[in-house]
């Protein structure tokens, strides 16, 4: 069974998803960081494929993308790095997140084949239009057992949330507040109202909240009405600030700090 599907069948609350950029801080850090996150107890991991023009991302993730590209990261290199992870004891669900152009240039069908070959469970492509997905990509993704995640924001109409929910089969990514990744979202009454409003829609997919989640307080507030939350920029900042030797321990402490 798809690891993502399996996870959500067994865990329906306080799910922690951690994002990091492939090939950052060093080109070959991707798999060691993935392993450290699994060991620290992350429930799923989202690996970012770096892009030159990440419009939905704030400064922290932009800089990690740029650094990864300077390190020589490519989609092809990422698949080489992920080769064999499932044989080496990585059991945590893995998603690839990225912008559409590098995937299109790699070849969407080849991308899906490679995902399946290395054991990737799902994808998040924020600039993939829903109609293009439905018309061109859905059968391909299904054929390679890749789950798809769609974003929803506070501005998304209820009708469109239902449409996105009908086509998603991984989870629904609830963007906490209008903004790019890393924006400081205080989990205020507005955000709470948006999350409980979304809960009331009774979506068929699990929901994870992202953007601006950085610590135990924001994680708990975000998870109150949802299946869990996603941490990105705060984790990238940790990677930036931590020397390689202390990294495994720092990741342990970080995950424990977010979800005690």
């Amino acid at each position: 069974m798809n690891r993502l599907t399996h996870l959500f069948q067994h865990k329906t609350a306080d799910v922690l998803n951690v994002y990091f950029t492939a090939g950052f801080p060093q080109l070959n850090d991707t798999v060691p960081i993935l392993k450290a996150l699994q060991d620290a107890g992350a429930d799923l991991v989202e690996i970012g494929m770096p892009y030159s023009d990440p419009v939905a991302d704030g400064e922290t993730i932009q800089r990690s993308n740029q650094q990864a590209l300077e390190n020589g990261m490519t989609v092809a290199t990422l698949f080489e790095q992920l080769q064999g992870i499932r044989e080496q004891g990585i059991t945590v669900p893995v998603l690839l997140m990225g912008y559409l152009n590098p995937v299109v240039q790699f070849g969407v069908e080849k991308f899906c084949q490679q995902c399946q070959a290395v054991g990737v469970d799902g994808v998040i492509l924020p600039d993939l239009p829903l109609d293009v997905y439905e018309r061109e990509y859905k059968p391909l993704f299904a054929q390679h057992d890749l789950k798809v995640v769609f974003l929803v924001t506070p501005q998304t109409s209820a009708a469109r949330v239902r449409q996105l929910d009908a086509l998603a089969d991984g989870f629904i990514y609830l963007v906490a507040a209008a903004g790019t990744t890393g924006a400081q979202t205080d989990m205020n009454a507005d955000v709470d109202a948006y999350l409980s409003r979304t809960k009331a829609l009774g979506l068929r997919n699990p929901t994870l909240v992202g953007f601006g989640i950085s610590d135990a307080a924001s994680f708990a507030a975000a998870s109150r009405h949802t299946t869990g939350a996603i941490i990105g920029s705060a984790f990238i900042r940790l990677l930036q600030a931590t020397p390689t030797e202390g990294r495994t321990a720092a990741i342990q402490a970080f995950v424990r700090g977010v979800r005690p």
Partner: peptide, 21 residues
Amino acid sequence: GKPGILHGASTILMQTADGQV
């Protein structure tokens, strides 16, 4: 350039083989 996606549109753009602008 080659066909690809830039600033919200499918168009022709200058990019690397890996799809970086």
